[in-house]
């Protein structure tokens, strides 16, 4: 079997070097399970999928919910009025969601290879992203429980705020570009 390489694997060393100052921590979270869920939020199927996830699908635009812990942890992000992205550790079982949906109208698609996850944390994480993102990222309006699809340095990303920073989901083909951009923008925060 061929060796599996994550899209930003080549940047691990430079991410680590940029994280040494303590103001910022950059890292890739490779191979997360990501599942695209499309279903009518008012249908019984949406409820059953919520039961399979352990948390109801968030219906408020721009919100995300986290549930479970460890290997069972899931983050469900609102992508559209009938679309959600489930982010979970590697090995999360897609079949449980498929069983929740059954043969009813909707779709459950494993999109783990579509995007990779970059973790930007630390006291200057917000300043770093503000170099290339037009959204107000202050925790008062964009704290844990929010999510947004927007552009960061003109690359489309899904932004999910965490307690100490942000989870950045970026398309695999844009990962190298965004990693270069993050490292360049981080230069002033690296001791």
């Amino acid at each position: 079997m061929a060796e599996r390489r994550s899209p930003a694997a080549a940047y691990a060393g430079r991410f680590e070097a940029a994280s040494r100052g303590g103001a910022l921590r950059l890292a890739e979270l490779p191979f997360l399970t990501q599942i695209d869920v499309r279903v009518d939020p008012s249908s019984p199927a949406a409820g059953d999928i919520g039961d399979a996830l352990g948390v109801p699908l968030p219906v408020e635009p721009g919100t995300a919910v986290r549930a479970g812990s460890g290997a069972d942890e899931v983050t469900v992000a609102w992508l559209g009025p009938d679309e959600w992205l489930v982010v979970a550790p590697e090995g999360h079982r897609v079949e449980l969601l498929r069983k929740g949906l059954g043969d009813r109208h909707g779709s459950i698609v494993d999109v783990s290879a579509q995007r990779t996850a970059l973790l930007v944390t630390g006291p200057r994480a917000r300043d770093l992203l503000a170099h290339g993102c037009a959204l107000d990222l202050h925790p008062a309006v964009f704290g844990p429980g929010a999510c947004a699809q927007t552009t960061l340095a003109r690359a489309q990303v899904v932004l999910i705020p965490r307690e100490d920073g942000f989870l950045l989901l970026v398309r695999s083909s844009f990962a190298a570009y965004l990693a270069e951009w993050l490292l360049d923008a981080a230069a002033e925060y690296v001791a």
């Binding site: 635009p61 721009g62 009025p81 037009a134 927007t150 552009t151």
Partner: peptide, 10 residues
């Protein structure tokens, strides 16, 4: 109408 105010480039 879903996401709120965003810049035109989006």
């Amino acid at each position: 109408p879903w996401c709120g105010p965003r810049e035109e480039a989006e």
